[in-house]
Structure formats: C-alpha cells, structure tokens
Design a protein around this nucleic acid. Structure first.
Lengths: 353, 353
DNA sequence: CCCCTTTTCGGAAGCGCTTCCGAATATGAT
DNA sequence: ATCATATTCGGAAGCGCTTCCGAAAAGGGG
C-alpha cells in the first residue's frame, strides 16, 4: 500500500551533495548558506517530493506549530462559522488545528482534568466558553498562550462583540418603532449554573430602556437556555401574561424563531401583533425575513487567530477587541400596534401552575 | 510564564529507581515488566503529573495517532454536525483530530497539491467531498487509510445515507397527498463542474415518479447550487411557468426555506397553494414547521469514525454503510389543491430574457 | 544442590531533524 | 602579498521516547 520508502532529509542532502546540517539550513532558509547551495537543495527537495517529518522537527525545536481549538458545540452555526475563521488564518500561517469538543459537563471535566492537548500545542483558543477559576488554573498548567474568541470572557486576550451594545441596538430599534412593552427572552448557559443569564446582553437591554426612560416590566423578561424550542416554551409564558408585549427581543436568531412559532400557533401575527427581533444574523434569518442584529462571527474568528499569531510572535497586539454589530431590518418588526389583539385561538395553557 | 521544567520520562525513571527502558515499558503496560514495578512507576508518574511527549513517541514508533478531517464547509449545519460525531469517537479512542478546510477551488487545490497533512496523520476522512481522480491519486500519496463520511462517494469505505431513497420518500409523500405536478430544485456542487447535479437525489425522484406512473414535466426540475438564496431564485423561475406546480421538493432544508420565501413573496400560501418539502431535518426546520426527510447526520459521523478505527485495527468492517432516512411530516405539505391559484401579487419578473 | 528455562530489567541504538561550534575557504583592507 | 574578518559548511550532540538484545535474577525439575 505504502509506496516506496519515504524520503528523508538525509536523502535530499546526499542527492544535493551537502551535509545534513546544510540541507536543513537551506530548507529552512536560515542564514548562513550560499544562495546557490540553497537553490540546489531546494530543487532536489522538490524533485524528490520531500516533506519534513513534523515529529522530528518538533522534537528538535520544541515548537509544535499547532494550536488547539476548544469548542462547546459543533452543531450550531455560530461555532462552525467561528471555527472556520480561526482555521483559515491558522492554517495559512502554517499551523495545525486540533479540535477539542467539550460539550456536556462530563466532556468538559474530562478535558480540563486530562488536558489531552498538553504538550501538543503552542496555544489554545477557547471559543465562546466561559471558564471557571478552576478550569483556568488547569489550563495554565499547559503553559501556553491562550486567547478567547467570542463569548463574554475577559480572562484572556479576546476578540468578541460588545454584547451590551448589540442588545442596546436591538432595543433601540424597537423603541424607535414606538414599542414600550418589550419582552426579552434571555439565554443562560446550561453548563454554567453560577452565572444565571447572559450578563452583557441583559445589561444592554436595561441600559437602553432607562436611557429612553421606559420602565421595564420584570414580568416581560424571561430566561431560558439557548435553543429554539426552549425559547418557544418561554414565549408561551410570555403569552400568558395579562397585558401582552408588543415586541420581543430574543438573545439569538434560533430563539427568535422559536418565539415566532409560538406566537403564530397562538393565532397572533408577526409582526402586526408582536414584533420579533433576534441576534446573530444566522444565514437562515434572511430566508425567513427575520429582523436581527448582525454580528460578524467569521471575522471574530479571523481576528482572534491574528491576535493569537501576534502573541506567539511576541508582539504586543490589542488584547481586547470588540467588533461592531448593526441591526438588519427585515420584516418581523414593525410599528407598535395600538390596542391589545384578540387571539384567534387562545394561547396554550400555561396559566399558572 | 512556564511553570518549572516539564517532567520527562527520565525523571520518572530516576524517581522510581528503574531504567528508562523499564519506565517506558511500565507506562505502556507492555509485556515484560513485573506487576509491582509497573505499579510503582505508574504511581510516580501520576505524582509527578508526567505526560509523555507525543512528538518523541511518535518519532520513535512511527504512528501519529491522529487523523485528518477534510471538510468543504464549516459554516453549514450538516458539516458541523458531522464533524461533531467524528470528533467524539475519534477523541475517545485517543486520537487527535486535525481539521482541514478545503472550501473554494484554490483552497481545495492547495490542499491536494501540498498535502499539508502528509506525515502528520494515520488516516484521513473526507466528509461529503467528492474527490476527482486526480485528487484521489494525490491523496493516496499519503499512504494512509481513507474513509468517506456522508456525501455520494463510493471511492472509499464510507457511511452515508441512501440519497435516492431519501428523495424517493419525499416524492412518495407528495404523491400520496395527491400531488402530480411536483417540482424539484436540485442541488449542484459548485466545485464540481463535471458532475452537474446530485445524481442520487435526482435519480430517486425519477424512480418514484415512474413507479407511480406519473409523468415528470422536465420544466419543473431546475438546478442550482446549495444555499437558500440560490434556491429562492430557482423558485422564481418555477413560478414563471404557465401551469404552476402544486408541490416542490428541495434537496435541502435551506433550499426549501428559500423556495418558501419566494412563494410567499409572490402572494401564494404554503402549503395551501404549494406544498414544500426539504431534506435534512435541519434543527431550524422544526421551528419553521417544515416537512422534511430526516437524515441522521451525527450518526453518520459516529459510524464513519468507528469504521475508520476498525480499519486501523486491521479488522474487516462493513465497507459500505447506508443509514436510514424517514420523512418528518410537519405543516408545509398538504393535499394537492384542485385549481390554479391566482397570485395576489404577480410573480417577480422572470418571464424570458 | 545443580543446570536449564523463564522473567525482569538495563544498555544502547536509533527515530529524523535542528543547531552549536569550529574548520575551511573566501573576501577585503592595507 | 598579508592578515583580519566574514561567509559557508560539516561534525556531532542532542530533542524524549521506544525497543532490540543480552545480562542478571528468579523459578523449577531432577
């Protein structure tokens, strides 16, 4: 199966009539080798299709030239997009990208206790995963550079969006349309019991409301985990309130879609009866005409990777980068209706219990 | 930054009072070391938090214990899900997972010409990427085990779904609802000009139609690249046909959503005027109540990984596995209408030019 | 109690590359 | 032409681990 013997540096050196040392220097275009020699060696290497053994050079140099990506989910658009961005610049910079999925609590625990990436990477980027103090300490045991991509984590050099600003933009969009009874479905990370809701995003909402001098009805802000069906359920609660909201702001597009499903099933119309706005600008948001605030996910990945590379090079980059967001108006938001709508069908039974 | 010196095998050996050779054997639980010795070494290793240098052991053994994942997109649900499945079992089996994104033609070319994974992995899994003959030849240069996950490729041991069957199921669902004028929006891979449309899926449609003895109107099958907005445009063409279809079958859920947007913008209703069915059961499909045929994506990843591991172990697993699909009925399909609907607004101008 | 087999372990030779150091040769100034 | 300096290159010592091979120790049978 395996064609012939793999060619090693020794073969190249012999063929080019130089020593191993010179061959190595020539190929790494290091200083101290005559231009003509370098060219000759390079030529031979090309002809022989020589590929350096990464193991050997890593052993010799100590640098692994690879970085670990620690990701909590792979199956959500946000993470795929982020990883895509990271991978692109990392790969172009000649680094290998190792993927570590730390989904559920057990997987998470396993990762931080065993540190499978130990001794294998020069750096790790945690994407949108809030690390506990203990986990941080474990990570540091690896003794490598760490950066955060996305999420709300200031423990490491990071690039993300300004979550508060994003929600503020969404809220202001609704306020501008005349909405006053604005509901918010906040997201909480299921793995992190110590931090009940998404702090930044929630804060942005309150900021915009007080700034506009509109009182917020606490009944209208509900929390749930990320995910459409969870948000759909949360929306049921919202619909069981006496005085319905005229608009709802969800912490993600998936959640917004879930809310819309509940609204429609209750016989209400979007946006005539209730406006809906999400966050992300998920690719499908365009297809369902969802108004949302767009965040540049892929860019966050790209920037985070650049940040990491700069750090690795010993430069002093900007350690805290926030990328801008902006609202994309589509057709799920409109001006606030005047009076309470009467549902065609009553809302699902979610009265009290 | 780096805490103390990393402990090496030599430290463990010294501390345990044995030779390097014995320490190595003890830790790899190889044959030929007394149980008590083994235990003592293990204990010391644990206490010192010893972690073997993967570089060194790889260099010495020749096995890399890592596998490359070659993925054409990272930002689409299907691929994230697939990668998630692969990563899970591969990681549990102690392998590292290297990610290689081969998106556009240049990236693709770069990958197959430079073979960046060369000498770095024991195996590669190509996920849903059809490889050309030339690419196949390049890949083989790596001299490693190869499997395919998803997609329509029989060049390597694979696990995927039966594409023809999936579309047949979708078509039969529509036929059962009384539809006769069924349109299909087929997907074509933009990187593969030599293979115009998705063969399997397209075939399944024709099979179901002839089996039901319903003639297919060639005007009703249109091709486009994967993606919602592309499908939306394709749908515009479909709506400019004199006698409208009563149902449309899209090759993916994203495409189905695109089609729905066009239909609704044309003032027609889904499903009353036109039924829509997709393929995949994208997580958002549930939220928008899209009827679709579900394919087990994550399972394909899991199975593919197991297949790979078996191959690596020298076993003889089933080299061609097809996982079942089934239609999930939601609310975008209903019985065929009797008469031509009259659009509230005329369809967008797509008449001839 | 001796000799032969089995078990346990240490020495040492790599794995394929990088890099320090010094030798050899070339370059330039005087 | 001469000497100091700069350039180019080869020898050799690792990087941290695995594993072959043989020596030493332990076990067993007569």
């Amino acid at each position: 199966m395996n064609s012939s013997k793999t060619v090693g540096l020794a073969d190249v050196a012999r063929e080019a009539g130089v020593s191993l040392a010179t061959a190595s220097r020539a190929l790494n275009s290091a200083y101290g080798v005559a231009a003509t020699t370098r060219e000759r060696v390079a030529e031979v290497a090309r002809r022989l299709e020589y590929v350096a053994s990464p193991e050997a050079s890593r052993l010799a140099t100590g640098a692994t030239r690879s970085v670990a990506l620690v990701v909590p989910h792979l199956d959500r658009w946000y993470f795929g997009e982020m990883v895509g961005g990271l991978e692109e610049v990392l790969r172009e910079a000649g680094h290998d990208v190792l993927l570590y999925h730390v989904g559920d609590p057990e997987g998470r625990h396993a990762f931080f206790e065993h540190l499978p990436a130990r001794r294998k990477v020069d750096a790790v980027v945690v994407v949108a995963v809030p690390v506990t103090d203990h986990e941080r300490r474990r990570l540091e045991l690896m003794g490598v550079t760490i950066v955060a991509a996305g999420g709300q984590d200031a423990t490491y050099p990071y690039v993300s969006i300004d979550d508060a600003a994003a929600v503020r933009q969404a809220t202001e969009h609704l306020l501008r349309l005349g909405h006053r009874r604005i509901a918010m479905i906040t997201a909480v990370d299921p793995d992190r019991t110590d931090q009940p809701v998404h702090r930044g995003r929630t804060r942005g909402f309150y900021e915009a409301m007080v700034r506009a001098d509109v009182p917020v009805d606490e009944e209208l802000v509900v929390a749930t985990t990320w995910g459409g069906v969870q948000a759909a359920e949360a929306m049921e609660n919202l619909l069981s309130i006496r005085e319905l909201p005229t608009a709802v702001l969800a912490h993600s597009d998936e959640m917004a879609l879930g809310a819309m499903r509940t609204i429609r099933r209750a016989g209400l119309r979007v946006p005539e009866d209730i406006s809906v706005i999400g966050i992300d600008d998920h690719p499908l948001a365009e297809l369902v005409d969802l108004t949302t605030v767009r965040q540049p996910v892929r860019d966050q990945g790209l920037q985070a990777a650049h940040l990491l590379l700069a750090l690795l090079r010993g430069q002093k980059p900007n350690l805290a980068q926030k990328l801008p967001t902006r609202v994309v108006v589509r057709s799920t938001t409109t001006t606030a209706r005047e009076k309470q709508p009467s549902p065609a069908h009553p809302a699902p039974d979610t009265t009290s219990h």
